[in-house]
Each structure stands twice: as structure tokens, then as C-alpha cells.
Design a binder for these strands. Structure first.
Length: 508
RNA sequence: GGUCCGUUCGUCUAGGGGUUAGGACACCAGAUUUUCAUUCUGGUAACACGGGUUCGAUUCCCGUACGGACUACCA
């Protein structure tokens, strides 16, 4: 396949939704697969929705998940600037061309007039209340006004927009890489605003102009854009760019985990899972949106999970690194139907990726989240992670599950003590700690054989007292391999903990 | 309401005119583990419905239902 030029084009209105991350990912996969170019374009043509920090957040998020931008905001490139607000002047000439050639027109209608038009139409029972071929001649625009009236209004500084003059009756078809042929009748499309009264283009114009200028070959975006795709086709045609029109691929949506509808932040909050790559604090409301990163997910796991929401390689392999995804990816294998977001599956992927990491890599997660005042060598942290990794789902689980390595228990699980703390246990532990105290370098193997020696000499089965030993050392009834844990703690610590348990739990 | 898009186990999905409709997550059971977790083995569970086309349709066509997106001077 020829190298593609694809773009991810979010608008900086807040945190980057996970669906956006998936869109970016699919773009990226195709770009890398074909040795092409991944472009980041910021679509900030709506100045009223601009949110400070959002752009930086988007860039940071993409970097975190491992999506590298070849060209675009924060990166530069031959088609700079990549921020639409900075390209403002560019769009005007194309709008002008459309007007000059009779494919667009000025419209001076006020908001009230538009509203009145809609109400009028609604009252007559019209199926759609749009500014279109059937209504445009009743409105205040350069189609109904005389040339001199128009010039006069423009000179006088009347606010105006530029609207596309959509053909009255024509079948518009486009071929979508995922959905095949899609046909829409032009009568269903309204005369969309191309240039707003503040001089900014709308998405429709800006997106077509920029995709053309930036030589975009494939537009991969969410399904919510499918209804306006025919409009874009029209724009390419009127601008004379039909031959350079990119291929379209409209991605299926990410759906709510239960029930139906587009996945939203509300659903995520309700179900208690993150919906954004990184934590995000809304600058105006101060509201925190949780990120996958801070919630203990590994970027590779997230990517793997996301890639499989709407795409699959057609084999039974499920664990794919980013570079394996690049190799396996094809647009043909993207599905058509929306995919529910199942956080349990994401957790499973995360677990798999954590288990696959080396102990030394994992140690970083423990080391960085150790409570104040606790120190731990990298070597010891790696050992701890080694015994813990099979039982961990999130990166922060290391710190919580490793607690007992650093802090002797102050209380003991009553369920265990009430059942397992008995005379036999006390006899074994008393003898065991004595033997242990003579051992300098305790290994798991030694811990085990010594324990067996003690129990057999006392005629008590090891299994009967093991829970008591665990609770005396960790305070809990369950945890990682006890002997290995004892090795990591060292005999001195183990002995003192058994001692302490013996004195606090003496009578039951 | 209108337009467009979609519909295989609870979820993500494979498949495709004749299959015991496959896998994964979740769930359940058993085994391993002195605990929990892991791991292993097994199990429950799906082609939305109705018409065609066909010797035969889950697969192709048409409807219906249901779901979703869109319907702004937002993207």
C-alpha cells in the first residue's frame, strides 16, 4: 500500500475522550503500516469552546499511549500552521471562490429570523426545518437580495455567514472504506454555514480545505461524521478537488457498557472507571476526570484493548504490542457495529501486561508510590514485585499489597485468628521462631524445611498451622507466597513479628 | 419526525450458502496451590423477526423490529 497521510484532528474543548484515542490509534496504525505520515491538527475554530490546557493535554495523552506525531501541532512540518485558528485567513479565499462560482452565498439572517423560519416550518408539519433549497429563497441572503443591497449590507458591516448552496435534487454518493457505497439525496442536506459571522470557518469548510492542502489521503474518523460526509464530497467537487478527495473510513462508535448510546463521562463515573488517558482537571469547574494512567493502567494494555474494540486481526491471538498491531492492522478488518466498552476486559489486558513485565520494570511502580518515610532498595522492590505480580491488576496494587513488607501488622485478621490461632499454632510458632533466630540469611527453602522440621518433631501437621504463621507475620489470611515473603523480610524481622504476635494473641 | 448507519453467546468478536457456529472476557464447576490470587481442565451461553432466492440459509435479497448517529454561526 502507498504511504498514507492521515490526520487526527481533535478540538481542544477538554480532555481527550477514549474514543478519540482509538480514532487516533487507527490513524496511527495505518500511517505506520504504510510508512506514511501521522498528522496532528488542532481544530479550534470554535472560540467559544476553547479550553486552556486542552491542547497540551491531547499532546501529552497521545505521547503517553505511544502514538507519535510525525507532523502537526507541537511538531511542525511543511504544512504549518496546524492549528486552524492560525489558518483563519486561508479559508476565506476558498469561501470566496465558492461564492464567485455560485456555489455559496451570503446570508444575513439573524438568530430570531432563523428561529421563526424553523417554527413556521414546524407548524406546517414539514419533515425537516432546514435552511435549504426549499427555504433559502424566503430568507435574507444574497440569493434574494439585489447585488447592490448585498454590497451595501457588507459595507455597512452587517454580520453575515457564508452558506453552501446545496443542489436541489441530486443523489450524492461516496464510498466508505468500512461501509461501502453510501448514498444521500441532496435535498436532505441543508445549506450549511461555511464561514461564521466571526470570520472563522466551520468544521465543514476548514476540514475539507485543510485535508486538501495537507494532502491527506485517508480520513479516518468517528461514525458521527457519516451524515455530513456527503456535504464534504460536495465541497470537494465545488472546489475542484474531487480527484484529490481522500478516502473515507467512518469508525463504529464506542458504546455505553450497559444500555445503549454513545459512551460518555457520566457512564464512566457511574461505573467507576476512567474514560480519559490522563487525569484532567477542568479549569473552570475544577472537576477531576480520571485517567487510565493514574488509575493504574499500562499504556500498552490500554492500546491493545482499544485496538480490539472494533477491529480484530482475524486470528486467535489477542495480545499485541503496538508494533505487532501495526503489522497486523488493515482497515478492511474494522467492524461496522458499535462496540460496548467493557472495563473488565481492559482490566484483563492490564493484568496480562503487568505479568509480562520484568520485576525491575515493575519495581518502579512500587518505589514511586511508597508511603512517606519508607525506603526500599531497588533490588528489594524488584523481589517484592516478583512475588506480587501474579496477583495484581493495577500498577498501584503493588504499593497496597506490599504494605506488610514494610510495616509489621498492628492488628490481625479475626477470621483467621479465631479459627487458626490455637495451642498447636502457639507451640509451633514458639519453637519455629527460636530456630529461625539462629539463621542469618534466610531463604524460602530454609524457611520451609525448618518449619517442617519443627512441625514433625511436635507431631503437628504443617497445613494446620500455616495460616497462623501467615497471620502472625502479615496480619492477613491471604497473600503472596509466605516463604518467599519471609525470605524478602529477613529472619530478624520475621522472628520479631512472630514474637509480637505471640504476645498480643497469647490468649484466645 | 426525517436522513443515514448498524444487528452472531451477557460483552468483544471469528466465520460464511451445507460447520458439533470458533476464540477471548465475564460467569459456573473441578484440578493444582498449606491461603487468596495465578495457572490448568471442563461447562452454561449466540446467528433479532418475517418473507423471498435456493435442493439447502446464520450467511444473499426485501421488508419489519430494535438500537445508534446526525438533524447548530459545535466539532
Amino acid at each position: 500500500m502507498q504511504p498514507v497521510r492521515v490526520r487526527f484532528a481533535p478540538s481542544p474543548t477538554g480532555a481527550l475522550h477514549i474514543g478519540g484515542v482509538r480514532t487516533a490509534l487507527y490513524n496511527y496504525l495505518l500511517a505506520k503500516k504504510t510508512n506514511g505520515t501521522m498528522i496532528l491538527r488542532i481544530e479550534d475554530t470554535d472560540q467559544t469552546r476553547f479550553v486552556p490546557g486542552a491542547e497540551a493535554y491531547i499532546i501529552k495523552s497521545l505521547a503517553w499511549v505511544g502514538i507519535k506525531i510525525d507532523e502537526g501541532v507541537g511538531q511542525g512540518g511543511p504544512h504549518a500552521p496546524y492549528r486552524q485558528s492560525e489558518r483563519k485567513l486561508l479559508y476565506k479565499q476558498y469561501a470566496q471562490k465558492l461564492i464567485d462560482e455560485g456555489n455559496a452565498y451570503y446570508a444575513f439572517d439573524t438568530e430570531e429570523e432563523l428561529e421563526a423560519m424553523r417554527n413556521r416550518l414546524k407548524a406546517t408539519g414539514s419533515s425537516h426545518q432546514q435552511y435549504s433549497a426549499t427555504t433559502r429563497m424566503m430568507m435574507d441572503n444574497s440569493l434574494t437580495l439585489s447585488e447592490s443591497e448585498v454590497q451595501q449590507k457588507l459595507k455597512a458591516g452587517y454580520p453575515y455567514v457564508i452558506r453552501l448552496k446545496v443542489p436541489e435534487s441530486e443523489e450524492i454518493s461516496l464510498s466508505d472504506l468500512i461501509r461501502g457505497e453510501v448514498n444521500v439525496h441532496s435535498s436532505q442536506i441543508d445549506d450549511k454555514v461555511l464561514m461564521k459571522s466571526d470570520g472563522m470557518p466551520t468544521y465543514h469548510l476548514a476540514n475539507v480545505v485543510d485535508d486538501y492542502l495537507m494532502r491527506i489521503t485517508h480520513v479516518i474518523r468517528g461514525e458521527e461524521w457519516l451524515p455530513s460526509a456527503p456535504l464534504h464530497v460536495l465541497l470537494y467537487r465545488f472546489l475542484g478537488w474531487e480527484k484529490q478527495m481522500p478516502q473515507f473510513a467512518h469508525l463504529p462508535l464506542l458504546l455505553k457498557p450497559d444500555g445503549n448510546g454513545k459512551l460518555s463521562k457520566r457512564d464512566a463515573d457511574k461505573a467507576g472507571f476512567p474514560l480519559f488517558p490522563l487525569n484532567w482537571v477542568d479549569p473552570t469547574t475544577n472537576e477531576l476526570s480520571k485517567g487510565f494512567c493514574e488509575s493504574g493502567y499500562l499504556p500498552d494494555a490500554l492500546i491493545n484493548f482499544l485496538a480490539f474494540l472494533g477491529w480484530n486481526p482475524g486470528t486467535e491471538k489477542e495480545i499485541f504490542s503496538l508494533s505487532e498491531l501495526i503489522d497486523a492492522f488493515t482497515v478492511e478488518r474494522i467492524g461496522k457495529a458499535g462496540a460496548r466498552f467493557d472495563i473488565l476486559k481492559a482490566q484483563w489486558f492490564n493484568q496480562q501486561y503487568i505479568k509480562a513485565k520484568s520485576n525491575t520494570d515493575l519495581a518502579a511502580f512500587l518505589l514511586t508510590s511508597l508511603p512517606q518515610g519508607i525506603t526500599c532498595s531497588a533490588e528489594k522492590a524488584a523481589k517484592i514485585c516478583g512475588v506480587l505480580k501474579e496477583r495484581v491488576t493495577f500498577t498501584h496494587d503493588f504499593a497496597t499489597q506490599a504494605r506488610f513488607f514494610f510495616e509489621a501488622p498492628t492488628e490481625y485478621d479475626q477470621h483467621v485468628t479465631s479459627k487458626k490461632w490455637n495451642d498447636d499454632a502457639i507451640r509451633v510458632l514458639t519453637a519455629y521462631k527460636q530456630t529461625l533466630s539462629s539463621i542469618k540469611e534466610l531463604t524460602a527453602e530454609m524457611a520451609k524445611t525448618t518449619l517442617e522440621d519443627v512441625t514433625t518433631s511436635l507431631g503437628i501437621s504443617t497445613g494446620k498451622i500455616l495460616q497462623a504463621l501467615r497471620v502472625s507475620i502479615t496480619g492477613a489470611g491471604s497473600g503472596p507466597d509466605l516463604m518467599l515473603s519471609m525470605e524478602i523480610m529477613g529472619s530478624e524481622e520475621v522472628v520479631s513479628r512472630i514474637d509480637r504476635a505471640l504476645s498480643t494473641l497469647k490468649k484466645v
